[in-house]
Design a binder for these strands. Structure first.
Lengths: 146, 146
DNA sequence: GAATATTAGTTGTTTTTGTAACTAACAAGG
DNA sequence: CCTTGTTAGTTACAAAAACAACTAATATTC
């Protein structure tokens, strides 16, 4: 198994990003999955509602760059578990305003705490300035600053 | 939709990494998917074989941190399309030695060229040192340097 | 203000992935 | 050797994602 080529997969950004993303999600994923039975899109919905209060499925989808069918299914599962409430919007009766219920709030608070710790732990691998620079570069790549 | 909380999802590393990975893979993915009908694990297998020559499924899996069932399925689809050959190993008759066929080689060459261009293009968003630092940090997060 | 297009969200169907159980070959210990 | 354990890879089944077609409400245009 001898490398016979200049190109290196291990330096190809999309590959590297995917590996880093997968690896760094693993531990946190295990927590929201095993402990709360949540899927990735589900905790994302929870976090958006936790951070911004009321939002529609559409708004969440736009912000999280997630397809509406994924959001729709996440929302109905979360509503079933009474983590979120759905209220038909006054101005536009196609849309529903979503919000965390009290029990959703408490799950969110716990997960948020875990996320903060986890993030801080990942961050400890980098020096003060590096972490900020990394986030800046990732935001640029993700197109979040546009 | 007012932010009411100090925690910011947009700075949470696992989230950010996932978004950046997804976003930066998108264009390249469209190429290997639409143009060559390859799945992500499939092009990964192709790239590993292209870079290292002969490898077993096990070796590819270890290097790409990919589960053996995913590799197994990728390998059988690639073999079906005659992009790779499978030869039972001399020393260990459980294992198969995989290699690109000539037509696999040519697909690999094309994709590799596209990947190089694409990577260079992503890289142009960063200054000289930044790109190298980013890769270094990602490798650390991915656990590739261990 | 009816006809047409657009939008919010859902549902159904097909791919792809994850997980567990399996087969066949090898390794070690007695 | 021959039992027990491990390893390479496959297969079967369940969970999740992708994609297309749909319903119902709202906008637009003539």
């Amino acid at each position: 198994m001898v490398k016979n080529d200049e190109f290196d997969l291990q330096n190809f950004l999309p590959y590297l990003l995917n590996q880093a993303a997968e690896q760094s999600s693993l531990e946190f994923q295990r927590i929201y999955k095993d402990r709360y039975g949540l899927l990735r899109t589900e905790w994302r919905v929870m976090f958006h509602l936790g951070m911004y209060g009321e939002m529609t499925a559409k708004q969440i989808g736009a912000r999280a760059m997630t397809h509406k069918t994924k959001i729709s299914r996440a929302v109905s599962r979360l509503a079933q578990r009474r983590y979120i409430s759905r209220t038909r919007s006054e101005n536009d009766r196609r849309a529903e305003v979503l919000a965390l219920t009290p029990s959703g709030q408490s799950v969110y608070q716990e997960l948020r705490g875990i996320a903060e710790d986890y993030d801080a732990r990942l961050d400890r691998r980098f020096s003060r300035g590096e972490g900020a620079l990394l986030r800046m570069m990732l935001r640029r790549l993700a197109g979040l600053d546009d």
